[in-house]
Design a protein around this nucleic acid. Structure first.
Lengths: 346, 346
DNA sequence: CCCCGGAATGTTATCGCTAACATTATGAGG
DNA sequence: CCTCATAATGTTAGCGATAACATTCCGGGG
């Protein structure tokens, strides 16, 4: 049955175009086009002749031509910060899956630096490729500037950033995650909780820090000085060495799992046991966190769902042609996952 | 100076096209086209008038039209397996950066399952978008089948798979990495080395297992039964529990860092110290591995370089229009990174 | 048996760009 | 100052699809 991917007469180099199919089926090109775009408008008998011809010639519509004629490409652009990181990579994956289910393709631009210029350039490159819309995975505070001067007619969805700007937004409620983490630690009897934060330039870092601070204040506890890291295990380790020297530290909320890992390492080296001497909570719930030593209590973020939500927002935005109004939001709730790195205060 | 992204008269909805630029600059559309494609063929004075007009109108060429006219899109397709994993994500990142440097864009399809059908579909979707070539990041053995019946005229580059097929190939020498890992363990005085492998359906898993086995044989040691995991820390933990019960086990080579992490956890729980009782080597050198407990000796893979190489191969392939011959190869050497999880045998 | 209205199909123009060929400008040499 | 090769620019004709309008087909009512 399968004639291989190059059906038709053996000699034909150029791949088949609509006209070829039309000729073989004995109809006009327009009818072929209709079979593709509104099949119900062509008589079943004709339709099947056309379909057969398509199969025979292994016809595939030329997208460039369709784009030129219709103005829409079926491609969505994604501008993302460092797709090597667990969060962005997972979000991207979620977007890709959702997109595929709706027959969209994803073109990506990964940025290793986020600012007004790089975001603008990334979007420009994608616009040049006629993407139908752009999803920006831009967890930096500075991303907001880059978003302001983007052309307003371009459908845009933002993931995890620029909460105060009027764009459709999908993200995880960072603040809530932090609140849950800190409440958990307080409920175990800890007097206060230290915080190992991410860089202040990151939206997520600030959300988590804000949740941490608010929860402590609400409970009437003093908030210790924040230690600022850069998300890496290395920075968690460095800062952890400082914490390990201070015997008053009994509970630490690290802004992500990698820093928590570094922290665990530093505590261990200093002879401080977890959770007996110090309790540690992370954030992200990377797949490895149950196997840290000890298994890490952390806040689970469903990145896949964020990706799906972002795509759904984009679909709305493209579909109804509205400008997205004042920015619909889809906020995903994070969950605390309790493992063995947290325990009662001495 | 900056008039914002919507220069020109305020009322003009539709974005500027070549004709508009031509008119403003007082030349023909063709000259504008030439300024874009072969600037040296237009007189400097004219050129700068045209460039000024472009800037003034915020002109950006319509790619679809260019594709339709030239047949090349400046977009490269990447079909990749689960881009959430560290390896594929890093490779993708490397490809993207190399591509951007050469003004190519990347369209991706991530597969959660690799077989003849899914690969074929992924490639078809990309072909439908007129990609100039496809890079397949397909670390499965089964990927080979999927590659066989791809259209021969489509420029194709394979990353880390199908070594026996005649496609341009970029990858890391898995076997060599394993050899270095095992030699290191043997040199520490261990009688033999156990192996925690990845699934047999993965090319990398087999390469590493083969290197492990060959090195043992070369040294005249008996190769213990292989324990097969699935790359996850979870599986490393499960299998590690079995190894931990066997007191004859003093050295283990895990096929990746995640499994090594699970293994470390299992050993610790069983009261076996690392490296005093058991030495462990991983593979990948994920950024967190220096902060495992203890810091992991592992094999570093330069995924970024693999991505760059893959792109370079693609450029050759597209550039000279050849069929890639019998498949040029770019093999990256992995490096052993010695940390604290390995020590002398008792 | 003719006419008519809607369904099915065909024609034409166009999307924005570039290849290929046609034309005009330029300036060195006679 | 004219000639002519060469550089600089312009014109025409698609690339492959779809939108919009034009035509043909068909069966039922008069």
């Amino acid at each position: 049955m399968d004639e291989g991917r190059n059906g038709g007469r053996p000699g034909d180099r150029r791949s088949a175009v609509m006209e070829d199919v039309a000729e073989l089926a004995g109809v006009s090109a327009m009818t072929v086009s209709r079979v593709l775009n509104s099949p119900e408008r062509v008589r079943p008998a004709t339709r099947s002749r056309v379909l057969a011809a398509m199969r025979e010639l292994d016809y595939r519509p030329n997208l460039a031509a369709r784009v030129l004629a219709t103005g829409r490409s079926g491609v969505l652009g994604v501008v993302s910060f460092d797709t090597t990181l667990y969060g962005p990579a997972s979000t991207l994956y979620g977007i890709e899956r959702a997109a595929r289910a709706h027959d969209y393709l994803i073109s990506i631009v990964s940025l290793s630096e986020l600012n007004r210029r790089t975001i603008g350039e990334g979007v420009d490159r994608l616009r040049g490729q006629n993407v139908d819309g752009v999803i920006i995975v831009a967890p930096h505070e500075s991303a907001a500037e880059g978003l302001r001067d983007l052309p307003p007619e371009l459908p845009l969805v933002v993931v995890g950033a620029a909460e105060h700007l009027p764009f459709p937004l999908a993200s995880v409620d960072q603040r809530l995650g932090a609140v849950r983490a800190v409440r958990h630690l307080l409920s175990l009897g800890h007097e206060t909780v230290w915080h190992l934060s991410g860089p202040a330039s990151w939206v997520d870092a600030n959300g988590r820090a804000a949740g941490w601070r608010a929860t402590l204040e609400e409970a009437g506890r003093a908030a210790p000085e924040v230690l600022v890291g850069d998300w890496s295990a290395r920075s968690g380790y460095r800062l952890g060495q400082r914490l390990a020297r201070d015997p008053s530290v009994t509970a630490v909320f690290a802004a992500n799992d990698a820093m928590a890992l570094g922290l665990l390492r530093a505590l261990r080296e200093a002879g401080r046991r977890v959770p007996e001497d110090v309790s540690v909570v992370g954030f992200d719930d990377v797949p490895e966190s149950p196997y840290f030593s000890p298994p890490l209590t952390t806040v689970h973020q469903n990145f896949g769902e964020v990706g799906t939500s972002a795509f759904a927002l984009m679909l709305d935005r493209i579909g109804d042609g509205s400008d997205g109004g004042s920015g619909p939001r889809r906020i995903v709730e994070p969950e605390l996952v309790v493992r063995e790195s947290t325990g009662a205060s001495r």
